[in-house]
Each structure stands twice: as C-alpha cells, then as structure tokens.
Nucleic acid binder design. Sequence first.
RNA 1: GCGCCCGUAGCUCAAUUGGAUAGAGUGACUGACUACGAAUCAGCAGGUUGGCCGUUCGAAUCGGCCCGGGCGCGCCA
Length: 559
Amino acid sequence: MVFKVFEKNLRTLIAGCVKEVTPNIAREDALEIGLEAPKDKSHGDIATNAALKLSGRAKKAPMEYAALLAERINQRLTDSRLKTEIDRAEAKRPGFINFWFSERRLFETLEDIAKKKVRYGSLDIGNKKKVNIEFVSANPTGPLTIAHGRQAAFGDALANILKFAGYGVTREYYLNDEGNQIDLLGRSIRARYLELCGLDSEFPDGGYKGAYIAEMAKAAKAKYGERFVRRESPEFFATFGCNWMVNDIKEDLRNFNVTFDVWYSQKRLNKSGKIKNALKFLSRKKLLYEKGGATWFKSSKFGDDKDRVVVKSTGEYTYLAPDVAYHMYKFKRGFEILIDSWGPDHHGYIGRIKAAVKAFGRKKAVLETLIVQLSTLYKDGKAVQISTRAGEFITLRDLVKDVGRDVARFFFLTRKRDSHLDFDLALAKKHSMDNPVYYIQYAHARICSMLKYSREKKKGPVKASLHRRHLKGQDETDIMKLLGRFPLVIELCARSLEVFPLISYLEETASAFHSYYDKYRIITDDASLTEGRLFLCLAIRTVLANGLRLLGVASPKSM
RNA sequence: GCGCCCGUAGCUCAAUUGGAUAGAGUGACUGACUACGAAUCAGCAGGUUGGCCGUUCGAAUCGGCCCGGGCGCGCCA
C-alpha cells in the first residue's frame, strides 16, 4: 500500500536520525516507535512518540531530545525520498515530533480516489488468507428476531470489510437442523395440526407457541389433508417445519441484503460420520475419558474452566460434539482464520470451543469468537420482552417493514459489537428523518444532484478535474486529509474486527461535505473553479459510496 | 461464589487500542433558504471519565481493591 510504504520510509528516516543523534540506541529499537494521526489539526498530519519513548535511554529530557531529533530529521528530509511527501517536522511538548504532509501528497490522494473509484480504500493486508465467518446461525425453529438482525447486519458488514481488506472471505450459516429443538418444533406443529383436524392434542411441554406454528400446521393440512392424523409422525413435522423455517429465514436474509456462501447442515455433518471421526481424533490424542457413563473432553487441559461432556450417558451427543467436528472440518476445508459471531448467551461456550481448536494442534489455526450483544427493542418507552418459545418477539421482517432496510442495518451498527443496543422503535419511526443514515445518504445524494444540475446547466457532460490552485484552501486541505484516512479506517476495522469505526468515519466525512457545501458555492460561472470543486466532491462521493456499500446500505442518487 | 462485559456531558454513545486541551449525536437556547436539495449549516451550553491506590514521560484506556449495573456458569441448544 502506498501508505504502508510511506510509513516504513518514515520509520526508517526517524530511526536513522535517532542513531545519528544517540549512537547508543540500536536501529532496531528505534524502529519500534509509534506513528499516529493526531486528533488535533495543529499537531500536524502524522506524529511520532519516538522522543518520548527513547528519551530515557538518550539521557535527555523528552522535549529537549525531541527538538534535537526534529532538527536532524528536517536536515535529512531534503535528501530523503520522503521530501515530496512531507513538508517539515516540528517538536512539540511534551516531546512529540509532528509531521506535515506536502501539498503534493494530498493531491495524490485525490488522484488516487479518481483512479481507483470503487476500489479506493481496499487493501491487501489480508494476503488473500482464507477466512470463514460464521454468523446468525439461528435455529430454524422460529422466525429471525431483531437480535438476529443485529448479528446479520454486523456479520455481513464485517465480511464485506475483510474482503475489501484483502482476505478471502466465506460467509457461513451453521444450520442446526436436528436434535431436541427440531423435534420439539415438529411436535408443536403436530399438536396444532391435530387441533385443526378437530382432534384432541396435547401441546408439548415447553413447545413453540408462536402464530407461525399454527400457520405451518395450516399449510401442512392444506397440502396433505389429514393423512398425518393417525400416524405418529413427529419426524415428518420436524422436517416439514425445519424446511419451512429455513426458507423463511433465507427470505428474510435476502430482504435484508445478506447472503451466505455456505449453509452447513448439522444433519449432513452427522450423517457423513464427521462427528464420530472428530471424537476418534480426540480419543487417539487421549483427550477423552469416561465418567458416570458419559464421555468427557479434557478441555481444561487447554484453558477451559472444566472438562465438558461430549457424549451423554444416553448415547446422544451434546451440542459440543458436532461443534468440535464442525470447527475441525472448517480448518480442513482450508480456512486459516475462523470467526464465530455469537450472541451473548454463548459466552460460556467460548472456553470449550477454543480448547477444542487448540486440541487440534494446528499451529496456524486462529479462532476469533466475537460476541455481538443483544438489541432491546423499545416500544412506547418499554422494553419488549423476547421469548421465541412463548412466541413473543419482534421479527426482523416486521422491523424492516417498519423502518426500512437501510435504517435497520445502519442502526444495528451504530454501537460497538460489545455494547448493548437500545432500539427505540417509536423514535426510529418518528424521527426517521433525523437518522444518521439519512445524513450520510443525503450527502451522497446532494453530490449526485449537483452533478445533474451542472450537466443540465452546461447542456453537456460534467468536467471535473484537479485544478490544484483552487484546492489549496484550508477547508479543501482538511477534506483531502480526511479522505486519505479512509484506507486506515478500513485497516482499523479489519484488525479489530469491528464495524463501528467505519460508521463514525462516514458521519465525519458527510459532515465535512455538508459544511463545505454550505460555505462555498460549487457550481459557478468560473469553469475551472467549478471543475476543481467538483473534483473534490466526486472524491467525497466515492468514499461515501464505498463506505456505505461495505455497510450494506444503499447510496441513493436522490432521496 | 467463579468468569466475562460495562460504568464518560441531562439522555444515547465515541475517543485511532497507552498519547497532546476527553469528542459527536440528541435535547434546550440563538441565528441562516429570491443561487448548486434546509433530510442542511453556523453558534452557545453541558465533565472530578463511578471511587481510591499503583505502573510511567503520559491513564477514560493497563494492574489491584472497593461501589453500582448486565450476562454466563447443565449429561440444554
């Protein structure tokens, strides 16, 4: 990356100067210094804490050492290849050395954006490493709720970002299509089905009570009549219900602009013998033992609190068994990095699954378990209680119908994944015009609108070009620096596996545009001035569009 | 009891992962449409970062102990 090379050169330059000024400090140590973009504009465009870090070993006061270093850096800068990128260095209390970008470098950012367009901001830090990101993975026993909505919005956006950062990303949904919950689903539907046929039925203990169960029963009756009345047919209803729900979930996700590359069925995993094989593997490594009729996995040997049961005394697998197999085969499928995005109810589960992955003994295996917190829906100022089994929840479908896909997706991403999200429905609807997503989209639409206006006025294609003399003002310079930060924001998101930094960045960029637009008239009779300012605005539009695309939110030309 | 997350402006949240004077949105207040979209902009106000020690050039961030809140701790999934 351009920036990476720049950063490396800068480090080398600083390290060289450190060595010259203080020969007792090794080059390698001097390379370990920090580089960062200061918050305060008056502190330059990039800063290093080198003097602060090394002043102790230089046996000088931090500020004094910083001044000494800055002086040397300025001398060396003239014959460095960085001289076209950096104007000057300056020491500032308590001992930072600040650098100012050259004009030329800033204009290069604009040219870069114009050239790369939809690719601007993309990186190669992923080295095409294969990443598997598993998210949502809701049990097909009920419709997707708003909690799943947040999972979906987050996972999908993160996957977009990782791909943009150069990783080879596969989105995966683990389909829990067998086991107790699916059986219960089948029995719940069957009970409703029998009721429809005018027969007595006992609703299963803890069964699913939502209206969708009755709906499925009705559909089953419409399609198959009463032929399943006599036979004990839980399997039929389990399969019927599961297929129905999977289709339902897929449709909801499609409407939410989320698609998965792989739907991994637990039933298939089981049938293929992979669970058995995984257990055999652990057994061979002497990591399994019998106790009380059950089979235990020595997860405590790999950092878990205690050992875990993988096969119950009844002979059935616990949830952990297929999951161990599943993760093992994800690695076998060639993924180097696995990301599991889970709800907070899986918190206690992290230890055992990480233990399992360690037990595989793959050195390069990386498992990241991300907990995406719940969203509480507030309706009329009160939290809506959620219980899938009791049939009390707000579905993702209803939410999207209510506030729209873009607002819903964006809203879910406005908090860090760890933070609890309060989703006030009434407020989201009532103030939908004040929603930050509109703020960003509006900036994009405004730029599109300007282009249209200019096209109509000129009765011809719009020219936008880099007229440097018109883009030298402080406001333009600030915007260019902001746009130049976009790739770094992507990098930050990719490294921290967060989406949130991108949201704040886009808000900041939209704000910068709105401000600029209000302060200056873009389209005037001065042709070159107009072209220059349009060039800048187009660059802003590109960045906004790229950012919104990664979030899975539309960038409308008009609103 | 053990483990994890959290506590920042009236409210909801940030803070480039240890940086410089802790920032946005929202609410309140003041102002800006006969020119490119007012879904906007400009301004004003708001703080002992729950508390106390410690680590160091430097702490909202790291460590320890309290206070307060949330979640998880099954041969459930």
